[in-house]
């Protein structure tokens, strides 16, 4: 079982690369016949990834979310699944190349950090942690998708304004669709991340006896969530839209990434799993 899981872990980036290549061919319009087959490739990759997560859980005996490998792998898997739902429901394949490239990067980081140490920390093996971690990761997935759609909006808006009309730009979804998807993803991200953080505070109270332990990672996570919530509420009140809303989403995600990396690398936190 372990060997099977290890093989899958190393093979997964190759499946993602294959998937990206298929979407690249669809996006550039080289093989029109592939357009109707992308969903099948997507489902196969998702099932293989799911098999990897399940086998790791069976071998380790806990939900695999606490190591760097597992966190990034789950994030990539979430992006894949969310994108699969979007593709099936909206029947638009043009954004696949961009969204899945991001998922591939996360999967690659995950594969380079493969470890097989069984999680013994009680904090990380209980039910609340699973809910807290999975909700937070799915929340970040939604926020990263929002940034990808926002980037696509900025690119396409620029193309249309500068009259750069070619096969590539015509493959893109409509501007109004990209805007809608970006905003919808932010709302989903705020809800899921909010639930994740909420469960984190409940868990903190059960473990440390306080809902709000003074810890840099907790503070930063709460600030990021508040930043997104405030940004969204403000945008509704001020009726921001179009490229300004897109830039807000992209800059919000850039801020999230920079702060997140800095905290992980330089700050001391009880909230360190690897």
């Amino acid at each position: 079982m372990k060997l099977f899981s290890v093989i899958l872990s190393y093979l997964l980036p190759f499946f993602y690369i294959g998937l990206i290549y298929v979407y690249y061919l669809v996006f550039t319009g080289k093989y029109k016949s592939l357009t109707s087959k992308t969903t099948v490739f997507l489902i196969i990759t998702a099932l293989i990834h799911l098999a990897e997560i399940v086998t790791r859980q069976l071998v380790l005996g806990t939900m695999p979310l606490s190591t760097m490998h597992d966190a990034f792998s789950f994030l990539a898997f979430s992006i894949l699944v969310v994108y699969l739902i979007i593709e099936i429901s909206l029947n638009n394949k043009a954004s696949g190349f961009f969204v899945l490239s991001f998922a591939f990067l996360l999967e690659l980081i995950s594969s380079f950090n493969l470890s097989w140490e069984k999680e013994t920390n009680a904090l990380l093996t209980n039910f609340y942690f699973t809910i807290h971690a999975s909700m937070s990761i799915m929340g970040y997935t939604a926020l990263s998708l929002s940034a990808i759609y926002a980037l696509m909006y900025i690119y396409q808006n620029r193309n249309l304004k500068l009259k750069r009309i070619g096969r590539l730009s015509s493959q893109f979804p409509a501007l109004t669709y990209l805007e809608k998807m970006s905003i919808r993803s932010v709302v989903i991200g705020i809800i899921l991340l909010g639930l994740g953080i909420f469960h984190g505070h409940i868990q903190a109270n059960r473990t440390f006896g306080t809902y709000y332990p003074i810890d840099i990672k907790v503070i930063v996570s709460d600030l990021i969530w508040l930043f997104y919530l405030a940004g969204y509420v403000l945008s509704r009140i001020m009726r921001w839209r179009g490229k300004w809303m897109a830039w807000l989403s992209v800059s919000g995600f850039a801020f999230l990434m920079i702060i997140g990396v800095m905290v992980m690398l330089f700050a001391e936190s009880f909230h360190r799993f690897y």
Binding site: S170, T176, K180
Partner: peptide, 9 residues
């Protein structure tokens, strides 16, 4: 029409 479809879904 083709161009408008790149703006409105």
């Amino acid at each position: 029409v083709e161009l408008a479809r790149q703006i409105f879904s």
